[in-house]
Design a protein around this nucleic acid. Structure first.
Length: 485
RNA sequence: GGGAAUGUAGCUCAGUCGGUAGAGCAGCGGCCUUUUAAGCCGUGGGUCGCGGGUUCGAAUCCCGCCGUUCCCA
């Protein structure tokens, strides 16, 4: 690094060390795509000139001529640099460059003896000095901590990381486009809530100095988006961050990205249809197909997703339980004890059943499966089922053993909603950190009348993990949370 | 929160039984006009995560702390 520092000082003395006048007219990847098929003779007869900017990644100096690779956002291309073409002084300067330096080159495309499309460089200049050395070219950067802390280095040297974030960008774009095409309106609702709501989760707290009040980072945008439905924005969505003050793991980051959408005059079955369609379209856009591999597992997003109720799925994986047992708190408690899950006395049959579901079913649902009819107890914002008021018109989508989306027919009865909030407040008073607050303004909004509506929340990070075949959420978040160095 | 693994040169990694800290790549000085992990000759580079302890002597053994990774809650 000291040597590079000295070189920079030298450059400063010789003139402009960080010039800003260079303009490129081509990208490496575009040249490869456009002229990759042109043979040597054709390139000679019809010379293609190009100006490229990029980072010097490799160099092979063979005396008076050299090869080098530069990388830009589109990819790489090989340069052929010779003393004859540049002159003694400029060639010496080229040899004094370091890996990682950002240079501008101008030259003519040609094909080498081995047939590689390359740029014969006529002129070359240093645009920005790399004072720190890049990781080794062969092994790259493998230390996960450095990859996440110094993502900028990771992105320079790790092709697979660039690909993952490309998939992420394509996925988000496809979801946004799919909703916009269907007439949905994109909204941005508050990230800072006086009353956090919309999910059962522990919030982060912060303080507003001028107002001298506690504010919470949102755990979900749900209640604000539904206020917009009341306001007449009948198809609305938001793609943005949520914050949950809970454990960190390969599947949880304190801030994560969620897509939520709401559609009036639709129910949870319509919502399942759209969920399925959007995920399929996202896979198609990001990967070019719906047949995917996740950690060695073949997953088919092209086939119709299976739909089954919580009860059906629990029965299927627990043959020792009869239908009637699923509503019997005592039997469920015994089952939990058998599964070595501590069962709290305050839990009703619904909460107990869901614990059994999570322990015995969830992990087995590899292929896309909608699980429906969640107990009312664990669904404080979902509409009651008309035939069975103890369950709700709700679903969760499971793929590769994980929850990917959650949706339901929205509860638009303000009196029922007020009662559900009161039950949540009771749970909170009893010590449940994740229970919801009573949101009086939300009840007031519902009292103006919300049309029958369905809504869905889809975890973007988890979808990207699936599509990019990544085992950890940290691989799909550019700057995952780490403790300070 | 519990358990396991891990931290050594810029990067990727060795380091045996406790006895002067190593390799490859990168760097630096040379040679080399079609290479692609280019090659050949020469050469510099360390807070062994941090703090304590045991010992004549600690990268190595013990204790504590910090970071990271994975598993579990």
């Amino acid at each position: 690094m000291q040597v590079r520092q000295d070189k920079l000082t030298q450059w400063r003395h010789e003139g402009q060390a960080y010039p800003n006048h260079f303009r490129r007219d081509a990208l490496a990847g575009d040249l490869q795509a456009r002229y990759g098929d042109m043979d040597a003779l054709a390139l000679e007869q019809e010379p293609i000139q190009a100006r490229l900017g990029g980072r010097l990644m490799t160099r092979r100096v063979m005396g008076k001529a050299s090869f080098a690779d530069i990388q830009d956002q589109s990819g790489r291309i090989q340069l052929f640099v010779s003393r004859d073409a540049l002159g003694e002084e400029h060639y010496a300067r080229f040899k004094a460059l370091d890996f990682g330096d950002i240079i501008g080159v101008e030259g003519t495309l040609f094909r080498t003896k081995t047939g590689e499309l390359s740029l014969k460089v006529h002129s070359l200049q240093l645009l920005s000095k790399a004072l720190r050395p890049l990781p080794e070219k062969w092994h790259g950067l493998s230390d996960a901590e450095t990859r996440f802390r110094q993502r900028y280095v990771d992105l320079i040297v790790t092709e697979s990381a660039r690909r993952t974030f490309q998939i992420r960008a394509e996925t988000v774009a496809a979801l946004r486009e799919g909703l916009r095409q269907r007439g949905f309106f994109e909204a941005e609702t508050p990230m800072m809530h006086a009353i956090p709501g919309g999910a059962t989760a522990r919030p982060f707290m912060t303080h507003h100095h001028a107002l001298d009040m506690t504010l919470y980072l949102r755990v979900a945008p749900e209640l604000y988006l539904k206020r917009l439905v009341v306001g007449g924005i009948e198809q609305v969505f938001e793609i943005n961050r949520n914050f949950r003050n809970e454990g960190i793991s390969t599947r949880h980051n304190p801030e994560f990205t969620m897509l939520e959408w709401y559609e009036a005059y639709a129910d949870y079955r319509d919502a399942m249809d759209l969920t399925e369609t959007l995920i399929r379209a996202a896979a198609q856009a990001a990967l070019g197909g719906t047949q995917i591999q996740y950690q060695g597992l073949e997953i088919d997003l092209g086939k119709a997703f299976v739909r089954m109720s919580v009860s059906e799925s629990v029965r299927a994986h627990n043959p020792d339980l009869a239908d009637a047992d699923l509503r019997d708190p005592e039997v469920l408690a015994a089952k939990l004890t058998q599964l070595r899950v501590p069962c709290e006395a305050s839990w009703g049959w619904g909460k107990r059943l869901i614990e059994i579901f999570e322990k015995t079913v969830e992990g087995h649902l590899q292929q896309p499966t909608f699980i429906t009819e969640y107990p009312l107890e664990v669904s404080p914002l979902a509409r009651r089922n008309d035939l069975d008021p103890e369950v709700t018109d709700r679903f969760e989508l499971m793929i590769a053993g994980r929850e990917l989306a959650n949706g339901f027919s929205e509860l638009n009865d303000p009196e029922d909603q007020a009662a559900r909030f009161r039950a949540q407040v009771e749970a909170k008073d009893a010590g449940d950190e994740e229970a919801m607050f009573y949101d009086a303004d939300y009840i007031r909004a519902l009292e103006y009348g919300m049309p029958p509506t369905a809504g869905v929340g889809l975890g973007i990070d988890r979808l990207v993990m699936l599509l990019a075949d990544q085992p950890s959420i940290r691989e799909v978040i550019l700057f995952p949370h780490l403790r300070p160095e």
